[in-house]
C-alpha cells in the first residue's frame, strides 16, 4: 500500500492540456490537473461542467483528442500500475439478463491492465473487501436485487479489493443513504491515513469537508479554481457535521435538483 517504488517522486495524477470532444461538442479544453501523492483533492463544478468527463478521461474511459495523462508515474495505457488504481463510478450499469453476485462483481476488480486472470486468493480478498464496506453478509446475493446504497457499497469494495494507492470517486454523495455515505467518508479517511491519494467529484464538500486538502473547480470544461477548499470553517471538520447553511464562496454549489436550465454548447 505504501509508496516505495522508484516512481514515488512523480505525482499521483498528472494531466496536461487535456481536450475531450464528445459528439462534436468540446467538453474539456486544455485541462491541467496535478494531484500529489497523499493528497485528497475534490473536483467541484455545476452539472455539465465536465467533472465526470475529466475523471473518465483521466482513467482512459473517455477518449482524449489532445493532452497527456500520467497516473502514479505511468503514461495512460500499459504504463499505469492499474492494480493500484481504484475507481468507483456513480452507479452500477443496468446489467444484462444474467444475474451476478456481489462477490463476482468485486472479484471483477481483480482483473486489470494486462492481468487477465484473477490471483489465487481472489475470493478471500473479495470477501475481505466486502467486509470492509459492511456487505459481507450479502456476498452471494445478486447485485440487481440490492438497493442503490448497497450496490454503491459493492462498487466501493470492487475498487478497494485492489488495495489502491489512488482512489477516484465519481459523486459519492449524490442520492445515497446515510450508511453508504459514511462508508465513503470512512474509506477516504482510512486511505488518506495510509498515505493514499484520493480524487473525488463532489457537488458540495458536505461530510467530506474535513478531509479535503485542495479543491479544483471546473466551469464550461476549464479549470477556474485551484486552491484550498472553499469554506474551510472549523465546524465543518467534524465528521457528523450537517451541511445546512448556504455557501457564499465560488464555486456556487449545485442546487441539487438534478435539473440544469443551462444551454450546453
Amino acid at each position: 500500500m505504501l509508496v516505495t517504488d522508484t516512481t514515488a517522486a512523480e505525482p499521483a495524477v498528472l494531466a496536461t492540456g487535456v481536450d475531450v470532444v464528445l459528439g462534436g461538442h468540446q467538453i474539456l479544453s486544455g485541462v491541467d490537473l496535478r494531484v500529489e501523492r497523499g493528497e485528497v483533492v475534490a473536483l467541484l463544478g455545476a452539472n455539465g461542467s465536465g467533472k465526470s468527463t475529466l475523471v473518465r478521461a483521466l482513467l482512459g474511459i473517455a477518449p482524449r483528442t489532445a493532452g497527456e495523462v500520467r497516473l502514479l508515474g505511468g503514461a495512460l495505457g500499459n504504463g499505469v500500475p492499474w492494480e493500484r488504481v481504484g475507481y468507483v463510478p456513480q452507479r452500477l450499469p443496468a446489467g444484462g439478463g444474467v444475474p451476478a453476485t456481489a462477490l463476482e462483481v468485486v472479484m471483477s476488480g481483480l482483473v486489470h491492465g494486462r492481468t487477465l486472470r484473477p490471483p489465487r486468493d481472489a475470493r478471500k480478498r473479495a470477501l475481505a473487501a466486502l467486509d470492509e464496506v459492511g456487505m459481507a453478509a450479502h456476498a452471494r446475493r445478486s447485485v440487481l436485487q440490492m438497493s442503490g446504497g448497497q450496490q454503491q457499497r459493492v462498487l466501493i469494495a470492487r475498487a478497494l479489493v485492489r488495495r489502491p494507492d489512488l482512489l477516484v470517486l465519481d459523486e459519492p454523495t449524490s442520492g445515497i443513504d446515510l450508511p453508504t455515505q459514511e462508508t465513503f467518508v470512512a474509506t477516504v479517511r482510512r486511505l488518506h491515513e495510509q498515505g493514499g491519494t484520493v480524487l473525488v467529484i463532489l457537488h458540495e464538500l458536505g461530510s467530506f469537508a474535513g478531509l479535503i486538502d485542495r479543491a479544483v473547480a471546473l466551469r464550461h470544461g476549464r479549470v477556474v479554481y485551484d486552491g484550498p477548499p472553499p469554506d474551510p470553517r472549523g465546524e465543518h471538520a467534524g465528521p457528523g457535521h450537517e451541511h445546512t447553511h448556504p455557501h457564499a464562496d465560488p464555486p456556487p454549489p449545485d442546487p441539487g435538483t438534478g435539473l440544469s436550465m443551462e444551454v450546453l454548447p
Binding site: 473518465r56 499505469v80 475507481y87 450499469p93 451476478a100 471483477s108 476488480g109 491492465g113 486472470r117
Partner: peptide
Amino acid sequence: LGLRHVLFAVSHDEEFARGSGL
C-alpha cells in the same frame, strides 16, 4: 472458461473495465 473472469468484467461493466486498463 479460461478468460471467464475478465470476459465477465468486460461484459458486466464495460466502462469500469476500460477504466481498469483492460
